[in-house]
Each structure stands twice: as C-alpha cells, then as structure tokens.
Nucleic acid binder design. Sequence first.
DNA 1: GCGACAG
DNA 2: ATCTTGTCGC
Length: 229
Amino acid sequence: MAYYRPPGPPPDPALVRSLTQQQHEMRQRVRHEPLPQEPRLIAGCDSSFPTPDTILSVFVVLKFPSLELVEKVYNYGPVDMPYVPGFLSFREAPNVIHAFAKLQHKPDVIMVDGHGIAHPRRMGIAAHLGVLLDMPTFGVAKQKLTGIFQEPGIARGSITELLDAKSGELIGEVIRSKDKVLPLFVSPGHRCDQATATRLTLACLKGYKLPEPTRLADHWAEEFKKEVR
DNA sequence: GCGACAG
DNA sequence: ATCTTGTCGC
C-alpha cells in the first residue's frame, strides 16, 4: 500500500475542468444492460509504460467459456497527458483504441484493467472505452478509487457491494478471486450490467488472483515490452 | 480542516 | 504504471 505519495507536478486547473466536462458528457451516453447473448469471445485489455513517455497497450481475445487464447495484439506510441487520478482514460485510451483496431477477431465483450462506473463521475476507463468503441465493457481493478465497502470473506468467491459513500448507489462489487488475496473491484462499463460483469469475472478465474483476460493481457504486455526496447 | 486518490 | 531483494506462507 502507498501510505505516502510524494507530491507530483500539480495538474493544470483549466485542463481538469475541461476533462471533467468531457466525462460528464460521455456519461450521458453510457448504458447498462445485459449482453444481447452469451459471449463467444471475450477480450482482455491492459497497458504498460516501457519508458515514462511511451505507452504499450495490449488486447488478448479468448474463446468463452473455454478461455482458449485466439489472438493477441499491441500498439506502442507516445503519451502526452500526465497521470491524474480520475482521468486515467485520457492518458491511455488513444493508444488502446489503436490496439483494438488491429484485432482480426472482434470480441463480444471487453474486460478492462481498471474501473468501469466505480469512479467519481461514473466514467472509469472501462466506461470511457465502451463509449468510444461502442462495445460492451466492464472493469476489473486491483485498487479502489472511490466508494465504501465491507471486506468480503477470505474464501474465494466471497462478494460484497461497493457503494457510493454519499448516495448509497451500487457502483461495483468487491470480489475475493482467490483465497486470502486482496479482492478485486468489478464494475460495469458500457452496454453491460453489474450481474454480467461479476458473472463473467468469476467464469474467467483459473486459480489466479486475476481473471484470464486481464491476466494474459498483463502477461503479454510484459513480453511485448521486450520487443520495443 | 483532514484524508483519499484506478493505472 | 515503474524502480527493486529477500522473504514468508501455502
């Protein structure tokens, strides 16, 4: 845990206002609903940074529910936007979109490494990408960004709700994906609902803390990183 | 006023 | 996210 974080360069107030406005507008386009049909292909998405100013985004596509890997692609490019909590998508989405375009097999749903609506303005990167790609998406994050919750039981499969501290609104679910490991934060992005996000996450567990789509995207991000260095 | 703060 | 060794527990 990061108990203390040294102060980084202060984010430009004007930029933050602009990005906040963009999120409010995009939020109006988000829809929550079940998938039209059971997915045949599920994708995993993740990004890494080979150097401080370059980003490498990865997409893996797996058959569902067998979880057999059918494709993996990546895109590598420069990053301009700095990291500001709550505005991660503006820094990563552009490159992620380019990686998605390289896929030969378009998935039925995308599992994103990060939050869906479990975000201050309900626009985490999973929701953001869902709107831009007009694809069903949901987020699986390793750390909480916002909300309150009770610690789920230590047994794999235990689940508790992630609620907005002020309104009490359900913004996600906290899932113990493996015995005794820190829980995951799962929330719908776009064209997906909480029940589906949680169900698919559980269906993609293979004994590791991370579900296969995200775990493999993470793995290949490390492998591809060697190629661009 | 005091914390919290995805990747 | 990224930089990093040894170490604890199943």
